[in-house]
Design a protein around this nucleic acid. Structure first.
Length: 467
RNA sequence: GGCGCGAUAGCAAAAUGGUUAUGCCGCGGAUUGCAAAUCCGUUUAUCCCGGUUCGAUUCCGGGUCGCGCCUCCA
């Protein structure tokens, strides 16, 4: 069994072979920090979190780099609107992003380079592109990349450069020699934030920072480059043009792009203003519910967000947690460390190795929890322990099932009945049952149910959860 | 206009040239004081029209509808 990855560049699933055996260098385009992260960002964060976790678990030494773009027109505009230094704005949203990612259980990347820390490298790359004839300094102080000079331009997004020229419909900057050319360096206006450069005071263009940071952190060529669904063109196309022209080497080998998150059939995006932030969703739902929702569809397919879909995700997770009650003591282990792994482990690997097919991986876990429930019913303790450990270990690999079952099943809002009040009611009911006063005991149970609390009498013991 | 993706049961979502996806919901049974949970069983599918094939949801062609990128967006 070998790992297969869908490569945007070839538009096909390919057997994955790293440049250096056992090592994977991976770069993912991260956030431009001027606003809260929304669910679309969460999708990319979680997708590549699961991918990097799986690759590590499969034994690869993964170097996962995810950048932060902390200088950009939108950042400067927002800081201007707020009347604050742009560095205050970016520091705040970097911090908030880290909070969101921690709450979602997303492991931090190995390196998290920021554009403003790589200005010297960016200037060096732009200089190199000018020297090699791929870029030119215009009269207005901007530096542009000359798209016509890069023969393979358009390969990633499957675009014909000639047709791009015909289709240009934005106001073309006068200083450009060709409408398709894009800015590597932008001259600073009057009092704007700027750095000194051979072309005067200015700041980096949008795409160059990723070329510079990925090359500095991972080398001229690396294994995987990932990002959101709207990045293949122009961002990644331009990265390829910049990097390959500057280094003369193949840039990234496998391009991976997450699918869109939609709302009512339309892409969730800042420009449409139809986005839900991660934190507002996490105010109402357990982080694992959000993770489950994002993983229950394949990472490349579009998903349609709704409150209902979160509710369904919660119900699905409850099935796992109900099965794990009583196995709190089992700590998850790496899959390679499982003793005598069951067929479910092999099936899980098979699913994940097929372009990280998490929906199938979850289906395997549902089969596993059924087997676990059966083992519990049959009183087969060895089998129970084995399967519970396996389920927790598979869950851990996906960043799920990390809570104690009761913590997950009993989690409630502040306005809901307290655990103490529920326990007191249960005690009253135990006494009623002992007196065979089923009318009272059923009334207590019905009253609790009306308040969203479900009682379960299992083996003479009553437990509860919120429905 | 260019490039690309998708259409699967009540909902969500995989896969597959012939054989159970899976989860939720519905129905029946076991279990239970009654429930809940669990287990067992079970009802609903492959957008339309052609073609290839012994056989197509799956491959090919055409169509319809939806969506994405082509402009800042993950």
């Amino acid at each position: 069994m070998s790992l297969k990855i869908y490569n945007t560049f070839t538009r096909s699933k390919e057997v994955f072979t790293p440049i250096e055996a056992g090592k994977i260098n991976m770069y993912v385009c991260g956030m431009t920090v001027y606003d809260y992260c929304h669910l679309g960002h969460a999708r990319v964060l979680v997708a590549f979190d699961v991918i990097s976790r799986y690759l590590r678990n499969a034994g690869y030494a993964v170097n996962y780099v995810r950048n932060i773009t902390d200088i950009d027109d939108k950042i400067l505009n927002r800081a201007d609107e707020n009347g604050e230094p742009y560095t205050d704005l970016t520091a705040r949203f970097i911090d908030l992003m880290h909070q969101d990612e921690a709450r979602l259980g997303v492991q931090r990347p190995d390196q998290e380079p920021r554009a403003t820390a790589y200005i010297a490298e960016i200037i060096a790359m732009v200089s190199s592109l000018i020297e090699k004839g791929y870029a030119y300094a215009a009269d207005n102080g901007d530096v542009y990349y000359s798209v016509a000079k890069f023969g393979p331009y358009g390969q990633l997004s499957n675009k014909n450069p000639d047709e791009l020229l015909a289709g240009a419909r934005i106001d073309v900057e006068q200083a450009k020699q060709d409408p398709r050319d894009f800015a590597l360096w932008k001259a600073a206006q009057a009092s704007e934030v700027h750095w000194d450069s051979p072309w005067g005071k200015g700041r980096p263009g949008w795409h160059i920072e990723c070329s510079a940071m990925s090359t500095c952190c991972l080398g001229n060529s690396f294994d995987i480059h990932g990002g959101g669904p709207d990045l293949p063109f122009p961002h990644h196309e331009n990265e390829i043009a910049q990097s390959e022209a500057a280094t003369g080497e193949k840039y990234a080998r496998y391009w991976m792009h997450a699918g869109a998150v939609r709302v009512d059939g339309e892409k969730m995006s800042k420009s449409l203003g139809n986005f839900f932030t991660i934190r507002e969703i996490l105010d109402k739902y357990h982080p694992e519910v959000v993770r489950y929702l994002l993983i229950a569809s394949h990472y490349r397919s579009a998903i349609n967000y709704s409150e209902d879909s979160l509710q369904t995700a919660k119900t699905a997770l409850e099935r796992f947690y109900k099965g794990l009650k009583g196995f709190e003591a089992f700590a998850p282990v790496a899959l390679a460390d499982l003793p005598a792994p069951s067929e479910y482990i092999a099936r899980f690997h098979e699913a994940m190795q097929d372009d990280f097919n998490t929906p199938v991986a979850l289906a395997v876990m549902f089969d596993l929890v059924r087997a676990l429930n059966t083992a519990v019913k049959d009183g087969d303790e060895l089998q129970q322990q084995k399967l519970a450990l396996e389920l927790k270990s598979l869950g851990a690999l996906l960043g799920l099932l990390q809570s104690k079952p009761d913590d997950f099943l009993q989690a409630g809002g502040e306005d809901e009945l307290s655990a103490e009040a529920i326990e007191a009611k249960i005690q009253q009911r135990v006494e009623a049952k002992a007196n065979k006063d089923y009318t009272l005991s059923d009334k207590i149970r019905d009253d609790l149910k009306a308040q969203g609390v479900i009682l379960e009498d299992t083996g003479g013991v009553t437990t509860w959860r919120r429905g």
